[in-house]
C-alpha cells in the first residue's frame, strides 16, 4: 500500500516535471497566436473584403480573386516573371554550388581559405548594398559594359532589356551560393572513398561515377537545397526592387513586389491579402509536387540523409 502510494507520487512528480515544459514554451505559444496564427486567419478574412487601411472593410466574397484571374493583367505578368526567376535562379545556383563544392572536396591545402572567399558574398544576403553593387556593375555605364567594350561588344542592356533584366537579377542570387555549397561539401565528405575506388577499379568513367555515385548519394541534400531555394526565390523582393524596380516593360515585376505595391502603395489591403494567399498556395503546391516526385530520385541511406 505504502509502496503503491510512493509509485503514484513518483508518477505525479514526473508528470508535474513534464508540465513545466509548457511554462518554457509559453512565450512561443503567445508569439505564435499573436504574430502568426492571428495574422494568417486575418489575412484569409481580409482577402474576401475590400479593406483599404482607412477602416472600411466590406465583404466582397470572391471578387478579389475573380478580379485577379480575369481582369488584372499585371497578375499574370507577375506570375510569369516570378516563375521565370525561379527557373533561372534555382538550377543555376545549385549547379554552381555543387560544382564548386566538388572542386573544394579535392584534398588540397588551404582549402579553408578558398571556402571562406567563396562564401563571403553569401553573408550579405538580400542586403541593399549588394543590390546597389549589382545595379552599379550592370548599369549602362557600368563595369560589365565597359568590359564588353574592351572586346568590341555593344551594350548588352543587362538591366534595360526586357529579355535580359530578370536574368541579370537572378545572377545576384547565384553569386550568393555559399550556404548551398557548404551543405553540398558536408554531404560530399560523407560519401565513403571506397565507393570511388571500387568504381575506378571497375573502370568506370568520371562522368559515370558522378551520375551513379555522387548524385544518388547526394540526392537528399540536393533535394533539400532545391526546396529551400525554390521557396526563397518565390519570395524574392529586395534585389529586384532596388536594382530595376518593375523593370523595362514590367519584366522584373516580381510577385511579392506586386503584393507590396497593391498593399502599401495603392492601399488595396484586401486585394493584397488575396494575392498573398495565391502565392502561399503556389508555394505549397510546388513543395508538395517536389516531395511527391522526390520518391523516385532521392535516396535515403540508413542514417545518411537528413
Amino acid at each position: 500500500m505504502k509502496r503503491n502510494n510512493k509509485n503514484i507520487m513518483k508518477i505525479h512528480k514526473k508528470r508535474k516535471w513534464g508540465y513545466i515544459g509548457l511554462v518554457y514554451i509559453s512565450p512561443w505559444i503567445i508569439g505564435f497566436l499573436v504574430f502568426q496564427f492571428y495574422p494568417i486567419v486575418a489575412s484569409l478574412i481580409y482577402s474576401f473584403t475590400d479593406f483599404d487601411m482607412m477602416g472600411n472593410a466590406n465583404f466582397v466574397a470572391l471578387k478579389n480573386y475573380i478580379y485577379m484571374f480575369t481582369k488584372d493583367r499585371d497578375f499574370y505578368n507577375s506570375l510569369k516573371v516570378t516563375f521565370l526567376y525561379v527557373f533561372y535562379a534555382v538550377p543555376l545556383k545549385l549547379a554552381f554550388a555543387l560544382a564548386v563544392a566538388m572542386i573544394l572536396n579535392a584534398r588540397l591545402k588551404a582549402i579553408n581559405i578558398f571556402r571562406t572567399v567563396y562564401y563571403l558574398p553569401s553573408i550579405f544576403g538580400g542586403s541593399v548594398a549588394t543590390a546597389l553593387l549589382w545595379r552599379f556593375l550592370f548599369m549602362r555605364e557600368g563595369a560589365m559594359n565597359n568590359l564588353l567594350a574592351v572586346f568590341g561588344l555593344p551594350d548588352a542592356g543587362w538591366l534595360s532589356s526586357p529579355k535580359l533584366a530578370l536574368f541579370t537579377l537572378s545572377l545576384l542570387t547565384v553569386w550568393q551560393f555559399g550556404s548551398s555549397m557548404v551543405l553540398f561539401l558536408a554531404g560530399l565528405q560523407q560519401i565513403p572513398g571506397e565507393l570511388y575506388e571500387a568504381a575506378k577499379i571497375d573502370g568506370a568513367s568520371r562522368i559515370r561515377t558522378f551520375f551513379k555515385i555522387t548524385i544518388p548519394l547526394l540526392s537528399p541534400i540536393i533535394f533539400f537545397n532545391m526546396v529551400m531555394q525554390t521557396v526563397n526565390s518565390f519570395q524574392e523582393f529586395t534585389g529586384a526592387f532596388v536594382i530595376t524596380n518593375r523593370g523595362p516593360l514590367n519584366s522584373t515585376y516580381l510577385y511579392v513586389m506586386k503584393l507590396y505595391y497593391e498593399g502599401f502603395q495603392y492601399f488595396k489591403m484586401g486585394y493584397a491579402c488575396a494575392l498573398s494567399w495565391i502565392l502561399f498556395a503556389i508555394i505549397i503546391t510546388v513543395t508538395l509536387i517536389a516531395f511527391k516526385t522526390s520518391k523516385s530520385w532521392v535516396f535515403y541511406t540508413s542514417g545518411g540523409g537528413r
Binding site: 502568426q36 494568417i40 521557396v231 503584393l259 498593399g263 502561399f280
Partner: peptide, 16 residues
Amino acid sequence: TLMLPNAVVIIPRYIL
C-alpha cells in the same frame, strides 16, 4: 511556420 511566407502575414501584421 518555417514554411510560411512572410508575404502572407505582412499585411495583417501591419494592421495589428
